[in-house]
């Protein structure tokens, strides 16, 4: 996330080292060696440029073009109206809610794990989170359909007990349902991110405050929360972007019935395009990149703040 700024820096320093021809006779050897040093990374950077940077740039450029190739803002105008505006609002709400829930649960769970002295529990939770954080997509959607879908096992159990959740406003195929399903990969991700900073808390800082006689409330007020706030905020941003970009789970679960940005964009790509909307998809894509970038900059800012504070 913090990468984008670094990337530019590095690109500058690299070309800075390579391109300006050094004054004749002055340190030619060093310049050549520097140039040689960079050459091994070229295939990697070319590959990345070809298959990631060019597609991304083409989306942004096309977003500003009309069907005839002239400059226009009408794609964006369309992207912030009607169903597309709704999809941006839905997506942001969904990602925000899902990330908040996962942050709270994840922090509590990480605290519980770190406070536990049981080695097996700790090993189980940390490797379990690493595995589950990589879960997602279609299989996840179907296993939740089997659980709390219309005919899911739990739905059936509850209905037999006289409480059908679908009669009381619950639906798996809604924003609420997606929020719940997303927890399955967001909570483990949160635990994975939060365990290291909380572990670090245990050591010197906790010892110091304990030996100085701080109570638990004092510890959290003056040490724990100020120290953990930046990593928690940074982790929240990571979760938000993760949820925002998720496509497979939402598509498999709702088959496009809820307006979300990735789903709308997917529909435009698969050819459900109305006349005169040729480059609308690119505008949606550019909008998604913009939102993720804003989140990324926030993340970089929080991280820098955190590391400055700690120095």
């Amino acid at each position: 996330m913090a990468s984008s700024t670094n990337v530019e820096d590095s690109a500058q320093s690299r070309t800075g080292g390579a391109s300006p021809p050094s004054p004749a006779g002055l340190r030619p050897k060093r310049g050549r060696r520097r140039w040689h040093n960079g050459i091994g990374t070229v295939p990697f950077l070319v590959y990345l440029g070809l298959f990631l940077v060019i597609p991304a740039i083409s989306v942004v450029v096309t977003a500003f073009q009309s069907g005839a190739g002239t400059f226009t803002l009408s794609n964006f105008n369309e992207a912030v109206h009607g169903v597309y505006l709704k999809s941006f609002i839905n997506s942001i709400q969904l990602s925000f809610a899902a990330a908040i829930v996962a942050t709270v649960v994840g922090v509590l769970a990480s605290l519980a794990v770190c406070a536990s002295s049981n080695r097996i529990v700790r090993a189980l939770v940390s490797s379990g989170s690493a595995v589950f954080a990589n879960t997602g997509g279609v299989p996840l959607a179907f296993s939740f359909i089997a659980t709390v879908g219309n005919f899911g096992v739990i739905t059936k159990l509850l209905t037999d007990a006289g409480f059908n959740p679908y009669d009381h406003g619950f639906s798996l195929y809604s924003v609420l349902g997606l929020t719940i399903v997303y927890q399955y990969f967001l909570i483990p991700l949160m635990v994975l991110i939060m365990i290291p900073p909380i572990e670090a808390l245990r050591k010197e800082w906790v010892d110091a405050s304990s030996s100085l006689g701080a109570t638990r409330a004092q510890f959290w007020r003056w040490v724990g929360i100020p120290l953990l706030a930046p990593p928690i905020l940074a982790a929240f941003i990571v979760l938000f972007t993760d949820a925002f970009a998720a496509y497979a789970t939402a598509e498999a679960l709702t088959s496009g019935t809820i307006a979300l940005v990735p789903i709308q964009l997917g529909a435009l790509i698969s050819g459900n395009v109305l006349a005169g909307q040729t480059n609308l998809g690119d505008a949606l894509g550019a909008g998604m990149i913009a939102i993720v970038l804003v989140a990324g900059f926030l993340y970089a800012y929080v991280q820098r703040k955190a590391s400055k504070w700690l120095r």
Partner: peptide, 8 residues
């Protein structure tokens, strides 16, 4: 996001 990469 991978959807955007696909479009690109």
């Amino acid at each position: 996001p991978s959807v955007v990469v696909t479009l690109g």
